[in-house]
Design a protein around this nucleic acid. Structure first.
Lengths: 342, 342
DNA sequence: GGCCACAGGTATATCGTTTAACTTGACGTA
DNA sequence: TACGTCAAGTTAAACGATATACCTGTGGCC
């Protein structure tokens, strides 16, 4: 028979003080002498008392939880552990401070995402939210601003906007290094398979890609807009290889597509990296699993999550505003790239 | 200037009724006439009022949130989207009812997991939790039972125990079909690379594996206990292939290991499926991405998550106790299996 | 000695709901 | 007519913390 959960009053009674005193002790406010504090603390641990999250939330208007909504179908979500890594990073910062992460996964229906944010805000379930995947024309900041919720964006805002955001330093270094790597191996026809065009990072990377090529007086041989799915990648590879002036190397917007594309190429009898070099983006574990192992642009996703959490916690006054560094993207050369054929 | 969030009192005032009446309306209790209900409802929507989650939680001791803790390192977590799929399924049931999912990710440190559950329970942040990965000697039920938290286990309890749990019907059909498939293709030396031995499903599947082989007067050629990591799989494949009586087929405990093992084999110059057939478990999208595509035992992870959520919601009185069906595991034959060599 | 400041507390209102207990008027019935 | 019932509300007490305002004893200082 588990007895009723103890309340602050029980602790106060056991310690022989008022409830206010207990509250002050656990919240580290001053005005309590050391001996009293000890009595309170031992009473609390004796009763295994922890403040009720609901009561604290109601009284102090702080829920000690932050929210995140992932907009993706289960399939895509599980094919691409992008979110999972971000969440790991976020959780790593949240846990030690006793913060929780309230996660919502919504499908692609247009209004579902907004509804989820709205609910989080209206019900006052979270103190802040983290946004991922900056999109062109993104209205989520507006929404959350009017809802009065602390927000941090992982990625680059789509326009000059004072929204707090985190991103890696030297953001272009990865894609740039990838291009140098390919050009250095004699590749002159390099294609790019991007993600959906409304993603800010898609456009950014594409520009970096083109700039880097331009520095060598080259231009992309092909640019295909895809959708992060395996089918999309297979499709793209089909198109690329069908061209009589086919590329000798292709850069994909993420690792899942790169792996799918690579497999599709091999299935068509095209050797990787012999006839076609392939580079991914993110450096998911997946890339090391496959054969040949994937050359890719590593992104510090866990670090990004961590940094985002810190920014949010800082704006909530929980931590000093020390921005954690996010490692710049870097090229990881493995087996899927090699000298240009011919 | 976002004005103060409206409270139930504002709604009551606007509708010209008492706060109790508003409460009854939104909670669907009787005793309110249709016209009054309408007035309340329009007042509420005019003010965009939603009950404060904290106040509701405090008063009614229901948080409308359920918790889950994933014990895994970021690396492993992202290599294996197992959790992600479960979460998708869970969320799918939770969202429509306005329930939230509070997620904690903890590393492998022994006490971290228990601490996370304890915190969830002590702070009364959730109405229930879902447990994954049933382990031999699992103490989590005990813990949660004494903490007085509703619990549902995804998987099979490690011992006869009245803990609510969900699992697929015809649990053994998948592995059994895999063995039939292999034996039917003339394989006589079949190895098994399992997950950590403390997992209940590991032992169960192994037993099914052995039984199914025994039905053909065969025994496992090798059994290797591994750890779900890519390195572990590579290692296992190395050992298997080094044996002069090497297996002609191998069954892995999950898809990530299978893919890693398959790649390792090919790197060693062993053709898959020509010289070695490989079968995975779970049917993650990953398996379709790679070349050759992975033959695997499909598990309805989203369905399991969904079922778990329903069981929990039923025990909270939110839904009728209609158990959602979980599709039985089935063999998905793709490219990584073929006739035994020789 | 009287007064003030301050450390170390205590008493109590309050956060926004739910709910048990109570009120009120209308109606049916004997 | 008098009474019981019932629908449709209302009143007010929780729920478990925090925070403001208040109290009390001690020591220092003139």
């Amino acid at each position: 028979m588990a007895s009723r959960k103890p309340t602050i009053a029980d602790v106060a009674a056991l310690a022989g003080v008022s409830v206010a005193a207990v509250s002050k002790v656990v919240n580290g406010k001053g005005g309590i002498s050391a001996p009293t504090r000890d009595r309170v603390l031992t009473a609390a641990s004796k009763l295994r008392w922890t403040p009720s999250a609901a009561a604290v939330a109601l009284r102090s208007a702080k829920t000690r939880a932050i929210g995140m909504v992932a907009k993706r179908s289960p399939d895509l979500l599980s094919a691409d552990p992008h979110f999972t890594l971000l969440i790991s990073g976020i959780e790593g910062e949240l846990s030690p401070l006793g913060y929780g992460l309230l996660l919502h996964i919504v499908g692609e229906e247009p209004s579902a995402e907004e509804a989820a944010y709205r609910r989080l805000a209206d019900e006052r379930r979270v103190d802040g939210v983290v946004l991922t995947e900056s999109r062109i024309g993104d209205t989520r900041f507006e929404l959350l601003r009017t809802l009065g919720v602390n927000t941090v964006l992982i990625g680059t805002p789509w326009r000059a906007d004072p929204v707090p955001s985190v991103q890696a330093t030297g953001l272009d270094s990865g894609v740039r290094a990838a291009v140098e790597h390919l050009v250095g191996h004699g590749h002159r026809r390099v294609a790019y398979v991007s993600g959906p065009e409304d993603r800010v990072h898609t456009l950014y990377r594409r520009r970096v890609f083109e700039d880097a090529l331009a520095a060598h007086d080259l231009a992309p041989s092909h640019t295909i807009v895809s959708d992060f799915t395996a089918a999309g990648a297979v499709d793209a590879i089909g198109k690329l290889l069908a061209d009589r002036r086919r590329p000798t190397a292709v850069l994909f917007a993420n690792d899942s597509m790169a792996v799918a594309g690579m497999s599709a190429a091999r299935r068509l009898g095209v050797d990787v990296p012999g006839e076609l070099s392939v580079i991914g983006h993110d450096d998911l574990p997946l890339g090391e699993l496959v054969y040949p192992q994937l050359t890719t642009v590593r992104q510090d996703l866990v670090g990004l999550g961590r940094a985002a959490a810190r920014v949010l916690l800082a704006s909530l006054g929980e931590v000093a505003d020390a921005p954690t560094a996010v490692r710049p993207p870097e090229l990881v050369v493995r087996e899927s790239t090699g000298p240009a054929p011919g």
